[in-house]
């Protein structure tokens, strides 16, 4: 195929212990480390491997967000993507509007495959890929742990609750990456230098002609309930009697 489109979202790094702001208006993001959503990084790695096997000729990374998301796109270019598109918005978009933006880019770019992460680890919504596939009227293969391309079709293994499911889909299609699809490569310094010369186009969201969906309103944020402090026991006998006390043995 000619082209693979990969979505990269800028999110709070997975190692950060996120804290809710004391006024409940959101979570603290000031001075917090930001990264590519880990699932998106896996999606990009898969696209790069497909290209390296000679099954695609171009990998385009796209992000929807503030201009800071350039940083994540540059990382994507350093990993090996050929060019980047940033759709610039002031405020964070809801999943359906995000999917509509991707749909508009699909119309413009005509990719043979769109690879996304299965969920973003900030809002944990797990919606965008499925929504894009619906708007596009094309197959979706979510939670992918293996992708085998066969010309106009692909065989995708999906991680589901009972085990592994495989489906056969026509291309073009949307595939969303699960954790075990691959292990993303590390970016090397010379690649970071090279990435600076690769094209990164910015498009203003307002100029895309995409209709915004009605978002679900976030009214109030709160920290999760803390568990009561536990006890330490010294040995197996202590553990057994503690379990008995709770009626669990």
């Amino acid at each position: 195929m000619e082209k693979i489109l990969v979505g990269l979202k800028r999110v709070v790094d997975y190692n950060v212990r996120v804290r809710v702001k004391s006024d409940g208006s959101g979570v603290e993001t000031d001075g917090v480390k930001m990264s590519i959503n880990p699932f998106d990084e896996i999606a990009l790695e898969e696209a790069l491997r497909i290209k390296e096997r000679g099954e695609a000729s171009e990998v385009v990374v796209v992000s929807v967000g503030g201009s800071e998301a350039q940083q994540q796109l540059r990382t994507g270019l350093a990993m090996g993507a050929d060019r980047a598109i940033l759709v610039v918005t002031e405020s964070e978009l809801d999943p359906l509007t995000g999917a509509r933006v991707l749909m508009e880019l699909v119309d413009r770019e005509q990719p043979g495959l769109v690879l996304l992460g299965k969920q973003a680890i900030d809002n944990d919504n797990n919606q965008t890929g499925q929504m894009l596939a619906a708007l596009w009227g094309r197959p979706q293969a979510t939670f992918a742990s293996e992708v085998v391309l066969n010309g106009d079709t692909a065989k995708v293994t999906r991680e589901v609750d009972v085990g592994l499911e495989s489906i056969d889909i026509d291309l073009p299609a949307v595939i969303t990456a699960d954790l075990r699809l691959n292990e993303p490569r590390y970016v090397k310094l010379p690649d970071i230098m090279k990435a600076k010369k690769k094209p990164l186009d910015e498009i203003q969201f307002a100029e895309m002609g995409v209709e915004s969906a009605v978002p679900v309103a976030n009214l109030q944020f709160e920290p999760p309930q803390q568990r009561a402090k536990g006890i330490m026991v010294d040995d197996v006998a202590g553990l057994v009697s503690a379990l008995k006390d709770k009626g669990l043995l």
Binding site: V27, D124, F221, P224
Partner: peptide, 9 residues
């Protein structure tokens, strides 16, 4: 959200 580190209404 955030792996259960925050709860949103």
């Amino acid at each position: 959200i955030y792996a259960g580190n925050a709860i949103v209404t």
